[in-house]
């Protein structure tokens, strides 16, 4: 099977195999990514994040159905945590999305974090590109249930949707740094519960205090995902943000930054591998011994290794 040609044709088997190849870092992974790269950059990427149990999966299901009714195809990456002890994982997001499984315009892939701590897997951005190249109009990343500082999603998503629920804490929670700073759109889910007015007010106050000079004020929407309430309006809000980014030129700016960061990160990785190859061996071992016995210091050791390697 010519996996790249089939993938670009939208073959689900090819998409699935390509994702496994990239996720497990098989030898062919780089070649696949190189070949599909020219076909990426077309999909609009939405990140959905929020605390565990806020309703991210149910909301992902409903948002996807709304996009389908608007004629868009959707790829979904659902991330759940790997156990730090066994390395195993239970990936349970599909439970809320079983109705989408039989829709040919939707492809869902569950991913485990495999040790990554930012709310996504290290390979999520590459899987986004695979779904993008396969022709999906919208790619949704559902992060793991996050606390306060797992904000990697902003590096990959065009629009970040933060899902909150009433009753999780007092108003000091709202001014803390972290996930509340990264929302382009907020969804107060389970909005039929007590405390929704107060949370809404606190969120508005938090946004009032924002001194940054951006023209986009994050929208606060209310949903009851299980009842499909507020979903049309929520997707409208995401589309408003998308339009804002496009018209203001910010989308291009963000994507340029993202490309730059990707190249830098890959360069960093490549240099690390190159360095490890260069410094490994008995010479490095004896240098380590010298430093460990306090005959040398690590700062001078690094200097001498670098001047050796970069000759």
């Amino acid at each position: 099977m010519d996996i790249v040609a089939e993938l670009l044709n939208g073959s689900k088997l090819a998409i699935s195999r390509a994702i496994t190849t990239v996720e497990n870092e098989y030898d062919e992974a780089t070649e696949i990514m190189q070949k599909i790269y020219p076909n990426t950059g077309k999909a609009y990427v939405i990140g959905i994040t929020g605390p565990p149990g806020a309703g991210k999966s149910t909301l992902t299901d409903k948002i996807t159905k709304e996009y389908r009714s608007r004629g868009k195809s959707v790829g979904i990456i659902a991330v759940d945590p790997s156990s730090p002890f066994s390395g195993g994982a239970i990936l349970g997001d599909r439970i809320r999305m079983n109705e989408l499984t039989m829709d040919d315009g939707v492809f869902i892939r569950s991913m485990a974090t495999r040790g990554s701590l930012g709310g996504m897997s290290r390979k999520t951005a590459e899987v986004v590109k695979i779904l993008d190249a396969a022709g999906k109009d919208i790619v949704i990343i559902e992060t793991v249930g996050v606390g306060q500082s797992e904000v990697d999603i902003v590096k990959t998503a065009d629009t970040t949707l933060v899902v909150l629920v009433p009753g999780l804490g007092d108003d000091i929670q709202a001014i803390k740094a972290g996930i509340l700073e990264i929302g382009d759109v907020f969804a107060i889910n389970k909005a039929d519960r007590e405390g929704v007015e107060r949370l809404n007010l606190e969120m508005e106050m938090m946004l009032d205090l924002d001194q940054s000079e951006t023209a986009w004020r994050p929208k606060i929407m209310r949903t009851v995902a299980s009842q499909n309430q507020g979903v049309v309006e929520l997707v409208d809000a995401i589309e408003d943000h998308s339009t804002f980014l496009t018209q203001s030129g910010m989308l291009e700016k963000h994507r340029f930054e993202r490309t730059r960061n990707e190249i830098l990160a890959m360069l960093d990785e490549a240099i690390k591998i190159y360095l490890m190859k260069k410094v490994a061996g008995s010479k490095f071992e004896s240098l380590t011994t010298e430093v460990n016995e306090r005959k040398n210091d690590p700062y001078s050791a690094v200097k001498s290794v670098l001047s050796e390697v970069l000759k």
């Binding site: 790997s82 066994s86 195993g88 994982a89 239970i90 349970g92 599909r94 439970i95 079983n98």
Partner: peptide
């Protein structure tokens, strides 16, 4: 999971197609 596998759990009442 405890044996180190990644388990995709899909819930109840599924069709063979799903």
């Amino acid at each position: 999971r405890d044996a180190g596998f990644e388990v995709i759990y899909t819930g109840i009442r599924l069709t063979p197609e799903q």
